[in-house]
Every structure is written in structure tokens, then in C-alpha cells.
Nucleic acid binder design. Structure first.
Lengths: 347, 347
DNA sequence: ATTAGCACTCGAATTTAGTGAGTGCTAATA
DNA sequence: TATTAGCACTCACTAAATTCGAGTGCTAAT
């Protein structure tokens, strides 16, 4: 940021030109190209001098002697920082497509990933909201048959969990009713973190002879909620990476794709992103900055959306370092606000 | 099958040798190799003659003049048919690993896909059971708050569906109770196919002033069940295809991986597989035989597992045509019977 | 401070020659 | 008659040699 002033207007323009050209072509860009392209009328020789300076400062680098220059991670970083500072883009209409089947959040998010992938030509991922600090809205046990009861738990944001419990000894209807009362009055409105062993012990006590059942139920509840902890992640457009030669050699492709398949790594990415508190909710990881080792040759752009109740999810775009940051940032902002709008209307 | 007799013992042995060698090396195999490898002591020249015959018959082919031979799809087919006919392999112990976290079917199936991928070094997929001819075991509406009620539906095989219904006008507790009674007594034990418009109309009538609610409920039920129709598919080891040069050029890799990502195509595969009624429940698609166009350069081996209640799911292995069929068939059979055992014990 | 000019560098593409695995055919052999 | 040895030929693949050209750094002129 400070670097920008220190750089001088002209150097900055040239750097900008180099990056933009490189984003389009993917080839190292030479001095002559810039000399013709940029509107400051300078000869290639002058550009060369400036380039030499920029290289010394670490903003660009040469793949080999007698090749043009390509932006370094540091160069990209400067460029992205500039873009981010730009005044909020006017948000134009988002694809209607997305709204069509918006009845189920799941569908909506899948669709979002797909639309985004189509729109940007990069690989995308969307995580379902993470239920941190989430509250229990409704809880109920019902008897399915003599041996099984089903526990249904509705969390804030209308996230539904359920779990079947196998009973050794049958539970009478009235006892079931009592148990339901007890659970609902006690647990309603509680956040998951607030449920601790002490509380469970107290409940067991109150349940009297059915303490054993309560134990089972809590196991089930814990289980059901825990399963949610590893949230769902939808991906789309993975194969877009084949469009960028620098990522599509066997080695890289394999790394990236396996990161996409075994969602473990993406989960890591989401966690990191959510942990970071940002004003705009948009983050850019360039190259080594990424939390996911497998993507060290990519750039990753993430945005956070909110569901109220402190539930947050993440949208991400993964592409080559020479990503069209301008377009990507715009698209993400749009989608982000779309999602926000939908979820808060739905509420 | 008939072809086998028509082929003659020696030609068959040679074909067998060619395929086995090719499976190992992935390189076209020449006459000299076979001459040394096989136990029938024949000179390369003789082998060459036989090979020429085999080629004319379409069992093997030359990638180009002056290269060795590789098996054609027809050749593979003959080979696989032979393997399939072999007496049931003795089933040795399956990895304990799989059984550990067997509490949730979902987990189990994911694990199964992963184990299989590790075990075979091919890409794998597992579909959750499809609820064809499935019956309703339990249905219940509960009030979450004044504006929302939740419908929980348990199907045979303990598949749980739920759906939140937004109400325009509040529903009293007693009416809810009545409605629950009505739904349960009427729908319990019914298969999804049996629910038709006539029935719905009759129910609406019986519900009296709440006919409108009933309509909503049925929409919800239909919706919840329909969503199940596009079953879940878990994949694993997609990147294994990079281990096989013949599949890892950009073109092929992209096709296969995108088939794996957009599950649409796999769904097609599963549907096809389930439609086919086979005695052993194992099917092999070689090259063009596959229902999934994107996999025309692969072989696909699928097995069907059962859950009782007529619910069936599919396990699939996708790899190069020069797949180690022997190993794959054995592994699949093992896994198949493991799953069967688990599910029928759990029942 | 800028630019024109020039010698130089070096990766990428193209050409060339060489290698060797494998074939088909023919003639000799058991 | 079935098998085999031998030989000329094919053709993908590799490595070395060659060319090409985009791009650079430096110097001298403007």
C-alpha cells in the first residue's frame, strides 16, 4: 500500500499494464508490447529500464533470460489490493436462473457453485453454513415402532438434523410425552456450546427411571449435531483448471483435483476463511498465501455469506494466479449480496 | 462363449497371455515376449502367425504397423466372460477398517468407496440405495413455531426425509393432532407409487376445513420424496486415473473427471445398472459398452447391493480398459457380501 | 531523460539421423 | 503339413543439430 506511492505513477502504470496483459495471454510480456499497448507514449527501451527497476523491487520476474516478464506474487498482491480498494461496484442483475429452484438451500448453493463456475471459467466451491453458535429451535422424539424412536432437531436457520435411536426396552407413550416436554422446555433456545455434562446430568436426574433413555438421546443429539460439524461442500467446474496450461500438467492437476475430491482440505480452507474477520468478507490468497498446500500454484478468492444467527458459509473460486481478479471480485460481490438478500428475505 | 471353442485351445492360451501381459505393462506386446513367457514352447514366428489370425478375428489389434498387439474390446470381453464363469471365489476377510464407523449408512458408504479406491487403485463410486417401491413407515407433522410446521417422513430402510412448511394461518394443536392421526392411519405402509390424486382428494375431503393444509403437506411429501429420487453418490480416488497414461491426457482426464463431478452421468450409470437384472449382480462394461459416454475409453465394473425392502444401491469401479479384472471382481464380490451382511444384520 | 541501434542470449520449434522392437513373408526343416 | 529360422521392411521414438525470433542490456546519440 505504501509501496504504491514509493513506486511512482509511471512504474505503477507499467506494472498494471504488464499484469493485465499477462492475465489475458498467459505468456511473459515484453517491453515492446507494453510500449505499444499503454497510452503513455514511451519506447520499448524506456520500458525496459523501468522493467529492470520493477524486477529489482520484486514485483515482476523473468522466467529465464531473454524472456518477457511475468508478475510475481508480490506484484499480484499489489494489483489485488488496488482492486479491493476501488469503490463498491454497482451491482447489476444476477442470473435469474439461480433463483428458480431456491426452495431448498441445498439446491440453491449447488446452483450457486455452478453458476459461478460457468460465469468465471474457474473452479468453484460453496460450503453450507457452519452452525457455530447455533441455537436449538425445536426438538422432538417420536416413536416409529416399538423398538425405534426418531429424534428430530431443528436448529436456527432451519437446519434439520435427525437420528434414529434403537431402544432396548419399549417406552410408553406418556413417558415419551413427558420426555418431550422436558427436553423442549430445557433445551429450547440453547446454543450447542451451552449444553454441557452438568446439564445432561441434571436432566437425567429429572427424567427419573428414564435416565438411560436421556443418555441415549443426548448421544444421538450430540451425534446428529456433530455430523453437521463437517459441513457439506459443493464444488463445480473442477475441470476448468484444464483450461490453464500452467495448472494442467499431471502433477498440479492431480493435486488440485484431489483437494477437491477429498473435501478435507477445502474444509480447512473454509475454516481459515471464516476465522479471519474481514470488513468486506472477501479474501484473496495468492500462491503460497493459501491455507491449502495443494493449491500453492493457484490463487484462491473467497467470500463469506451470512444467514443470521451467526451462521456463516463460504464461497470460493480457485484458479491460476493469472486469474481475472477484476471479474472474479465483481462476480463474488454480486453473488454474496444475492445470497444475503435471499436468506434474509426467506427468514 | 461359443467363440471360445471355435478359437482352439492354443489361440486361447495365446490371447490370454497377451491380455495378461498387456494388463501389467500397458505396452503393446510382441510375439517374442509371448514366445518366451507362455509355457507352450513355440517360436516367435509361430506366435506371429497365430496373432495374425487373432487379429483377423478381431480379438487383438495393432496400434500401428510394426508395433505389438493390444487386446480389442472384443478380446477383453472374452477374457472377462471367462473370469466371470469361474467358480465363486472363496471370500477372505475384508478390511476391518470399514466396519469401525458403521453407525451411519452414509459414513459406511463413503468409507466403502474409499477403501475400494485404495484397494484397487482405480476410481470408485458408491450410490445410496434408491427408494424404488419403497414404503412409508412413519409420518408426522410437528409445530416448530407459529408459522412453521415440520414434516418428518420415515421410509423403509430407515431413510428419513423432512421438509419445513410455512403456514399462512396458524394451525391449532388439536387440529395438528387430528391431521397426524389421519395421515398416519391412511398412509402408513403405503408405497410411494400407491399415493395418487384420488387418494389425496379423499384425504383433503376428510380433513375438512384444513384441506388446504393437506394440500400443502402432500406437496411437501412429494417434494421430500422426489428429492430423494436423485440419490447421493460418493466418489473416491478420482485422481487414480492419472496413474494410467492412456487416460491421463488432458482430453480424457477432463471427460472422466467431469463425469465424476457432475453426478448426473453417474446417476445414469446407476439407473442402467439397476435396471439390468443379473444373477450375480455384477456387471462389466468395456469401452463403448458403457452407458456413460464420457467413459468410453474406460472399463466400468459395477455391483449391486441390497437393503431389503427392494432398496438397491450400486458400487462401481472405473479404470482403464486394461484393468486388473481378476482383482477387481474379487474385491467387488467381497465388498458386496460385506455390505449385504451389515445391512441385514442391522435390520 | 529518452530513444535508437546493435550484439547477444536462450527457450522453443523444426529437422535430421539413428535405433530397435516388431512385423510379414519365404524358404528350409522335421 | 506344421513349425521355425532368417531377412527385409516399417515406423514410433529419441537425441542431437539447427534454426528462429522474441526479448534483453548496454551504449551512444538526441
Amino acid at each position: 500500500m505504501l509501496a504504491r506511492e514509493a513506486l511512482g505513477e509511471r512504474k505503477l502504470t507499467i506494472l498494471h499494464a504488464i499484469i493485465k496483459t499477462y492475465l489475458e495471454t498467459g505468456e511473459p510480456v515484453g517491453s515492446r508490447t507494453i510500449s505499444k499497448y499503454s497510452d503513455l507514449n514511451l519506447s520499448s527501451a524506456t520500458i525496459r529500464n523501468e522493467m529492470a527497476d520493477l524486477e529489482e523491487l520484486g514485483y515482476i520476474l523473468q522466467p529465464h533470460t531473454s524472456a518477457g516478464r511475468i508478475p510475481s506474487d508480490k506484484g499480484y498482491r499489489l494489483y489485488v489490493d488496488m482492486l479491493m480498494e476501488e469503490k463498491e461496484q454497482e451491482l447489476n442483475e444476477m442470473q435469474e436462473k439461480m433463483l428458480e429452484k431456491a426452495d431448498k438451500m441445498e439446491h440453491l448453493l449447488k446452483q450457486a457453485a455452478r453458476v459461478l463456475a460457468n460465469n468465471t471459467n474457474y473452479a468453484t466451491m460453496v460450503s453450507t453454513p457452519r452452525s457455530s453458535a447455533n441455537r436449538i429451535k425445536f426438538i422432538q422424539l417420536s416413536k416409529v415402532d416399538e423398538e425405534q424412536i426418531i429424534a428430530v432437531i431443528v436448529l436456527g436457520g432451519n437446519v434439520i438434523k435427525n437420528k434414529i435411536i434403537n431402544m432396548e426396552e419399549p417406552l410408553s407413550n406418556e413417558n415419551l410425552l413427558k420426555l418431550n416436554m422436558l427436553l423442549n422446555t430445557t433445551l429450547n433456545g440453547m446454543s450447542i456450546e451451552e449444553i454441557n455434562l452438568g446439564l445432561i446430568a441434571r436432566l437425567k436426574e429429572q427424567a427419573g427411571i428414564h435416565s438411560e433413555v436421556v443418555g441415549n438421546v443426548f448421544d444421538a443429539v450430540a451425534d446428529a449435531i456433530q455430523v453437521d460439524e463437517d459441513m457439506q461442500i459443493y464444488t463445480s467446474g473442477t475441470t476448468n483448471i484444464f483450461k490453464y496450461p500452467e495448472l494442467s500438467d499431471k502433477q498440479s492437476a492431480q493435486e488440485i483435483i484431489s483437494a477437491f475430491e477429498e473435501k478435507q482440505q477445502l474444509t480447512e480452507l473454509v475454516t481459515q476463511t471464516l476465522a479471519q474477520e474481514e470488513n468486506t468478507g472477501i479474501q484473496v490468497y495468492i500462491g503460497d498465501e493459501t491455507p491449502v498446500q495443494n493449491m500453492k500454484d493457484c490463487s484462491v478468492v473467497t467470500a463469506t455469506y451470512e444467514l443470521g444467527d451467526g451462521m456463516k458459509g463460504t464461497i470460493g473460486i480457485i484458479g491460476p494466479k493469472r486469474m481475472d481478479y477484476e471479474h472474479v471480485l465483481k462476480s463474488l460481490k454480486r453473488l454474496q449480496s444475492e445470497l444475503d438478500a435471499i436468506f434474509h428475505k426467506q427468514e
